[in-house]
Simulated assay, not measured.
Amino acid sequence: MSEKRGISPLLLLPPVIFAGLAALFFIGMTRDDPDALPSMLVGKPAPALVLSDLGGAAPFTAETLRDGQVKLVNFWASWCAPCREEHPDLKALAEAGVPIYGINYKDDPVKARRFLDELGDPFAAIGADPSGRTAIEWGVYGVPETFVLDGNGTVLLRHPGPLTPEIVEATIRPAMESAAQ
């Protein structure tokens, strides 16, 4: 007597797992920007600021971010090599009249001031975030990160990583121009 046996369900498990992983990989590869990190802030008011002074100047406040002007908020640190790379682009934006508010992230204040003295200070105002609490509230993954805010203090765009002339022209300026209309 021969007994008919079906295919064991365990034999089907590897191909099913492979097909599922292949589908996830395909979906991931077809996203608009696979390097984009999501931001829950876009379209919402900028979070609270808990900043201390950096070199004697009073830090800016949340009210400053709602002054009616389109602006940038840039998280940076003196120990951050990409921050040094993007600094000329921040200076160029500031020289073109773009208000940039700097938040110095988990940095030694003396080293942060030295960084600005050496490379120039592009910031309309600056504050320090020594504990990283403000960065957490803003959803910062790492420095540098730049946010475009409208005049009401609403976050319109988050750009993780250093700015480059290409990013400024393709992403930052269009977001600012759209906000100004």
Rank of each mutant, 00 (worst) to 15 (best):
G120K: 03
L72R: 03
T64E: 09
M29R: 10
P99I: 13
A23I: 06
A19Q: 03
W79A: 13
T64F: 10
A77V: 06
V143W: 00
L51D: 03
W76F: 13
G28N: 12
K111L: 03
E137V: 00
W138T: 01
I7F: 10
H87D: 07
D107S: 01
G68D: 10
V70M: 02
A81L: 15
L13T: 13
E63L: 03
A179E: 09
G56E: 07
L51I: 05
A46H: 03
E63G: 01
P9F: 11
L119N: 11
A22L: 15
P130N: 09
W76K: 06
A170H: 15
D67V: 07
G6D: 14
I172G: 07
A135R: 00
G139S: 14
A92Y: 10
K4G: 02
F115L: 04
D107F: 01
I100T: 12
E145F: 00
K106P: 00
P109Y: 03
D150A: 13
T64W: 10
R66V: 03
D107Y: 02
C80N: 14
D107E: 11
F115D: 01
F147V: 08
P88F: 05
A46D: 05
F123S: 06
P122H: 08
P82Y: 14
I17G: 07
A19V: 13
H159E: 11
E137G: 14
V42H: 01
I17H: 07
A46P: 05
P162R: 08
P144Y: 07
D53N: 11
A112V: 13
P174F: 14
F147W: 00
L119D: 04
P38L: 15
R133E: 15
K44N: 11
K71Y: 05
G28R: 11
S8Q: 10
S178E: 15
A36G: 01
I172N: 02
S8P: 01
N152F: 05
I136Q: 15
W138H: 08
L119S: 02
Y105Q: 00
P45F: 00
I100S: 00
V168Y: 08
F115S: 04
F26I: 11
E86C: 14
N74M: 06
P14T: 15
G20T: 08
S52G: 15
V16S: 07
C83Q: 07
A48S: 04
A48D: 14
G161F: 13
P15T: 15
L10F: 13
G142C: 11
